[in-house]
Design a protein around this nucleic acid. Structure first.
Lengths: 174, 174
DNA sequence: GCACAATGATTGTGTCGCGCAACATAAACT
DNA sequence: AGTTTATGTTGCGCGACACAATCATTGTGC
């Protein structure tokens, strides 16, 4: 397909896969820091992101999205409500359900905290031409799908919710 | 300062910045899952990554790297040691210091868990030509630096009110 | 319409990771 | 030598999460 020169191309690929974990690490650090600034926990900020991405939903759906139990989500909503980031609004059609929706203030604060990062990203992407943007998008989507596929594969592998510390070594690979 | 056509380029850029958080989210999920499979916590796996990246060091340096207190790192090392992932080896020149180094078994298990993801990434990068790889590397490094810059800026902004229960709402909002 | 099961959110209880502070040991300084 | 600093390890409390029980609401069969 493409001519891969052992010096240039392979080295660049190595540098990419080497820089990726650091990038993720910096993002995680940033999320943690922003959560701290907003008076919530990192998980709560994750919850807010899930809300922004998927729209307002009930606590159970939200729990399913972020991988927590409904009970934990309930107290999480308590915290986010106390911090003024989300609001509980009962569903008129089913009074059991409670819709969780982010408040405009919370949305603004989040957008404000991430404005610097998103602005820089947009500025940087503006220096790319169309072909570069396309290959970039392909890579990002491929990476996302690879990660999701790995998650799905490991999820399908075994089931180990919260085992005791005695069986520290659950298995070796099969 | 390239001509940004509203249809093609901007849309692709939007899709990129839209896919990035999902990618990070999937990575975080994967890390959590792998940590669970290894019988440790997500923070412990982060510690192992820091160890792999920066080489064996003392507990204090490790604590500085991953942003935890030495006390927490000590117990973290206990867990990782129980799981057979790291080993404590006293420094012969300074008997206060205890060098933390990953065990070969731990390294193999980690590499094995991430093998699928890294292999796919390498395969995918192999389909890129040299120019694409270079622009990709530029983007990844720029994103990493942007995130680090944001972290540094927020760190410089205010302090850590971690211990103040009364100051749950540090700023804004009333 | 009323009793029963089903669904959804909340709350009691325990576990465990983390930060803070006190402690033990070892090196460095005077 | 004695004192001070450095490094790692625990006692303690806080808080987030999982699990199970509870309450409220809806749907279903009689």
């Amino acid at each position: 397909m493409t001519k891969r020169e052992p010096n240039a191309g392979t080295g660049t690929a190595e540098r990419i896969v080497h820089a990726l974990p650091d990038w993720v690490d910096a993002i995680v650090q940033l999320n943690d820091l922003i959560a701290e600034r907003m008076g919530v926990v990192a998980s709560d900020l994750h919850c807010l992101h899930a809300l922004n991405r998927g729209g307002p939903t009930t606590a159970a759906v939200l729990a399913e999205r972020i991988g927590l139990t409904p009970g934990s989500v309930s107290r999480m909503i308590d915290r986010l409500d106390s911090a003024g980031c989300v609001r509980r609004s009962p569903d008129p059609r089913d009074r059991r359900k409670v819709l969780i929706e982010p408040t405009p203030e919370g949305l603004k604060r989040i957008a404000d905290y991430y404005a610097g990062l998103t602005d820089r990203t947009h500025e940087f992407l503006a220096t790319f031409d169309d072909a570069q943007l396309h290959s970039l998008l392909t890579f990002v989507e491929a990476g996302r799908e690879s990660a999701r596929a790995e998650v799905a594969r490991l999820r399908a592998g075994t089931r180990r919710p919260r085992g005791g510390p005695g069986s520290s070594l659950p298995d070796t690979r099969e």
